[in-house]
Design a protein around this nucleic acid. Structure first.
Length: 724
DNA sequence: GACCTGCTGCGGACTG
C-alpha cells in the first residue's frame, strides 16, 4: 500500500482492507496528502461514484481519530443539498466508523427529533446536514453555535457544482461566513464536485478572499469511448397515416433499450408520463415483463425509491423515463445508455446526464438524442423552418465533444437572498447594528456587489410600516418587526428558494389556465399557450395574473417562444451550424434532411444588412446571435419603442405598429446610445422568494444584475446593424 | 420552452 495509505488512522486502514481495496484511488491518495499535510482548502472534482466522498472523509476522519479535539462540538460538518444524499452518506460513514466511537449524525427534516436532541446534548463526530437545517440551527439556537461547532475542523460541501450560482449556494456561503464569525476562526473548506467548467470560479466561490490558496484534485479520465446518435422525427398531422413521432420514438426506445438499465430524459413531466405509458403498452402487447418506469417529482417517494432500487441492484433490466430528478443525487449505478428527448437546456446538464453511462472499464458511454420537428406548411413559423430545436441539440453536442460547459453566472446582487439573510442574522442575535450587519453580509459574506447605499435602501424597504419585516429600536439596534417575527417563526422560512407559483392566464375575463413563469414577461410580448399565440396586455405580478388577448400576427412555432437561460456560446454555435456545411456523422437520415432544410431556409431568409430579414410588411426577424440575457434585453428595449416582440433562441420576431418607428431607425437610436426605459411597460420582476417585500426600484436593480444586460445593448445593436 | 431542491417546535393522544 502507498504512502497515502500509511497516513490514515488504524481503524480507517482496517476498513479499507476489508473493502478488498488493493490501493487508494488516485484522487483519494492525492486528497489524503493535501488534507493531512497542511491546512489548505480543497476542491475534489470527479464524476458520480468516482470515490470523492472517501477522498475527503478518510483523511479527515483519520485526523479526528489520531488527534482528537478537546473543545466541544462536531468534528466534521458535511453539507449536502439533498436529503437522500445525506441518508446515503450517513450509512456509508457508519460502516467506515463502525470500529470507532465516532458518532455519525444525519440531520434533515425527516430525521427524528430524538436523534437531533441526542446529538446536540453531546455534539461529536460527523454532522451531515442540509443548508436549510443549518439555517434553522442559526435561527433557533444562535447562542449555541460555538458549543455545537467549537471542535469543527473542516466543512465538506457536496455537489458544489449544483449550487455554485444559485440562491442556495449564496445562502450556504453566507452561513459559512457566519459560522466562522461565531467561532472567531476560519474553518477549512472542502468542496466535492462534478467536473467543472471553470475551476478558478469554483475556487473563488469556495474561498472568496484567497482563491489562489485553494488546492485542487481532479480525477484523470473521461477516457471512456462516446457513442452518439441523433435521431430526427417530423411530428405528423392528425390525418397522416403511419405512427406519430411520439409512437416512433417509443418504438425505437423499446427496441433498443429493452434488456438493460437506461435513463431517458423526457424534458417535462407530461412527456415523461406519455412515453412511459406507450412503453408500458408495448411491453404488455409483447407479453413481456414491465421494465420502463416514470420518475419525476410529482410521483410518490415510494414509487421513486422503487425505481431507484431497481436501477441500483441490477437484478432486473430497468429503464427510467425521467426529468432532472435523476440527474443529481444518489448513486444509481452504471447505465448502458442515456436518452435525451428534445434539446437539453445546458451543456453542463447534458454532460452530467451522460456521466451516468459508460462508467465501467471498457464500456462506452452512449447518448441517444431524439429531436422532434414540426411538419412544415406554407404558413409555418420561421423558427420551425429553421429547425431550431434540432440545431440547438447539435450545437450542444458539439460543445460537449469539445469539453466545454457553461461557467457559473456572473455575480448578481441576489437581493431576495439578502433579505433572507438580514432577517436570519437579526433572529440569530436578537438584534444588531446596521453597520455590523453590513460587515457580516456584504464585506465578509457573499453579498459583495451590494454597496452601503443599496444596503440602506434594502433596510429602508424592509422597515416600511406596511412591510414591517424589521424595525429600529431607539438605541439604533435593528430588530425583527411584527411581520418579520411571523415570517421567521414559521418553518417555511428556512428555504431560500421559491416554490414555483403558477400565473393565471386570463383573456376577456375567461381563464385559459395556469402557466409557471420564470422569465421576463412584459405587455407587448407574445407568448404561446395551448397551441395558440397570445399578446400580453398586462402583468399583475402581485396577484399572479397575466391578462392576454388573442394575437393576430403570424403562426406560432410548435413550441413556445420563451427561451430559458441559454448561454451566448451555445447560440453562437447554433449560427455556426446554420451557416456551415459540415454534416455531423452522428445524424440519422431524417436528421440530415432536417439540417439541410434548416440551412436552405436560413439562406432564403435574405438577412439584410446581415442580421435583419423582412418577413412581411410589418413583420421582421432579427438574428441577435447571442444568448437569452442580451436577447431579452433587446426585446424589452424594442418593446419600449413601440414594437410587439417574440423571443426565440438567438432571434427576435418583431411586429410593427402603425405609430412605431421603422425598425432600423429604432435600432440605430439604440446603437447611438439612446436611453430607453426597459421597464416602461412593467414586466414581471417577481422571480424569487423574498422579492415581494422589495420596492419596484430595488426589483429593477436586481433584474438588471441577473437577467438583463443594459450596458451591452449598444454593442449588440451595433453588431446587428453591421457597424464596426 | 423545464426541472429540481427544503422545513421546527409543540401539544395531544396513545402505549408499555
Amino acid at each position: 500500500m502507498s504512502a497515502a495509505f500509511d497516513k490514515l488512522a488504524r481503524p480507517i486502514q482496517k476498513w479499507t482492507r476489508q473493502q478488498g481495496w488493493k490501493e487508494l484511488r488516485d484522487i483519494q491518495a492525492r486528497a489524503t496528502h493535501v488534507l493531512m499535510d497542511g491546512n489548505r482548502d480543497l476542491i475534489v472534482a470527479a464524476s458520480t461514484a468516482g470515490g470523492k466522498t472517501e477522498a475527503a472523509f478518510l483523511p479527515l476522519l483519520s485526523q479526528v481519530l489520531d488527534e482528537p479535539c478537546e473543545d466541544s462540538g462536531f468534528d466534521v460538518l458535511y453539507v449536502a443539498p439533498l436529503k437522500a444524499l445525506i441518508t446515503d452518506q450517513a450509512r456509508r460513514l457508519e460502516e467506515i466508523c463502525r470500529d470507532t466511537d465516532l458518532p455519525i449524525t444525519p440531520w434533515h427534516g425527516d430525521v427524528s427529533s430524538s436523534v437531533k436532541a441526542k446529538a446536540t446534548k453531546r455534539p461529536r463526530g460527523v454532522l451531515l446536514i442540509t443548508p436549510e437545517s443549518l439555517e434553522a440551527l442559526f435561527i433557533r439556537r444562535g447562542l449555541e453555535i460555538p458549543r455545537l461547532f467549537g471542535a469543527t475542523r473542516a466543512v465538506i460541501l457536496d455537489e458544489l457544482h449544483s449550487v455554485l450560482d444559485s440562491e442556495r449556494g449564496i445562502q450556504m456561503r453566507s452561513l459559512l461566513t457566519r459560522l466562522e464569525i461565531a467561532l472567531k476562526r476560519p474553518i477549512r473548506r472542502v468542496g466535492l464536485s462534478a467536473t467543472l467548467g471553470d475551476m478558478e470560479l469554483a475556487k473563488a466561490y469556495l474561498r472568496p478572499d484567497s482563491p489562489s490558496e485553494v488546492e485542487q484534485v481532479i480525477a484523470e479520465g473521461g477516457s471512456a469511448e462516446l457513442q452518439l446518435q441523433l435521431h430526427g422525427y417530423v411530428a405528423g398531422d392528425k390525418d397522416d397515416e403511419g405512427p406519430s413521432a411520439t409512437d416512433a420514438i417509443a418504438q425505437h426506445l423499446f427496441e433498443n433499450l429493452r434488456g438493460s438499465d437506461n435513463l431517458v430524459f423526457g424534458g417535462a413531466r407530461q412527456a415523461v408520463e406519455i412515453y412511459s405509458d406507450r412503453l408500458r403498452a408495448l411491453c404488455e402487447k409483447e407479453h413481456l415483463p414491465q421494465e420502463f418506469y416514470p420518475h419525476h417529482a410529482s410521483l410518490s417517494r415510494e414509487h421513486r425509491d422503487f425505481v431507484e432500487r431497481r436501477l441500483k441492484d441490477g437484478t432486473a433490466p430497468t429503464t427510467a423515463i425521467c426529468t432532472s430528478t435523476l440527474e443529481l443525487g444518489i448513486d444509481i449505478g452504471d447505465v448502458t445508455c442515456v436518452g435525451q428527448i428534445g434539446a437539453p437546456f445546458s451543456v453542463a446538464s447534458l454532460r452530467q446526464r451522460l456521466g451516468r453511462s459508460g462508467r465501467r472499464p471498457g464500456k462506452p458511454a452512449i447518448l441517444r438524442q431524439y429531436a422532434v420537428e414540426a411538419k412544415l406548411t406554407p404558413t409555418s413559423n420561421f423558427s420551425d423552418r429553421l429547425r431550431l430545436g434540432m440545431v440547438r441539440a447539435i450545437a450542444m453536442i458539439e460543445l460537449l465533444l469539445e469539453g466545454w460547459c457553461e461557467p457559473p453566472q456572473r455575480e448578481a446582487l441576489h437581493l431576495s437572498t439578502l433579505v433572507h439573510q438580514i432577517l436570519s442574522v437579526i433572529a440569530e442575535r436578537g438584534g444588531i447594528r446596521a453597520q455590523q450587519l453590513y460587515g457580516i453580509l456584504c464585506q465578509i459574506g457573499p453579498f459583495r456587489q451590494v454597496d452601503t447605499q443599496l444596503f440602506l435602501d434594502v433596510l429602508r424597504a424592509l422597515g416600511q410600516p406596511e412591510v414591517a419585516l424589521i424595525e429600529q429600536a431607539s438605541d439604533g439596534l435593528l430588530l425583527l418587526g411584527a411581520n418579520g417575527e411571523k415570517l421567521v417563526e414559521h418553518y417555511s422560512f428556512y428555504a431560500v428558494f421559491q416554490t414555483p407559483e403558477e400565473y393565471r392566464l386570463i383573456s376577456g375575463g375567461k381563464e385559459l389556465g395556469t402557466l409557471p413563469i420564470d422569465n421576463m414577461i412584459a405587455p407587448g410580448m407574445l407568448l404561446i399557450f395551448s397551441g395558440r399565440r397570445w399578446l400580453v396586455q398586462e402583468v399583475l405580478a402581485r396577484d399572479r395574473v397575466i391578462l392576454v388577448a388573442p394575437a393576430k400576427a403570424g403562426v406560432p412555432p410548435i413550441f413556445g417562444g420563451d427561451p430559458g437561460n441559454i448561454h451566448d456560446r451555445v447560440i453562437q454555435r447554433m449560427f455556426d451550424v446554420l451557416e456551415g456545411q459540415k454534416r455531423p456523422i452522428y445524424l440519422d437520415a431524417t436528421a440530415l434532411e432536417l439540417l439541410d432544410e434548416a440551412r436552405s431556409n436560413y439562406g432564403q431568409l435574405l438577412f439584410d444588412p446581415g442580421t435583419i430579414a423582412q418577413l412581411s410588411d410589418n413583420a421582421a426577424v432579427i438574428a441577435t446571435k447571442t444568448g437569452s440575457v442580451r436577447t431579452t434585453t433587446l426585446a424589452l428595449a424594442l418593446r419600449a419603442s413601440g414594437f410587439t416582440v417574440q423571443t426565440h433562441d438567438g432571434f427576435l420576431e418583431v411586429f410593427g405598429k402603425d405609430e412605431s418607428p421603422e425598425l432600423i431607425d429604432a435600432l440605430s437610436a439604440l446603437a447611438d446610445g439612446k436611453e430607453v426605459d426597459l421597464f416602461a411597460h412593467s414586466p414581471n420582476l417577481l422571480f424569487e422568494k423574498f422579492h415581494p417585500h422589495l420596492t419596484e426600484e430595488l426589483l429593477q436593480k436586481d433584474a438588471l444584475s441577473a437577467h438583463l444586460d443594459a450596458s451591452g445593448l449598444a454593442e449588440l445593436t451595433h453588431a446587428i446593424l453591421g457597424r464596426d
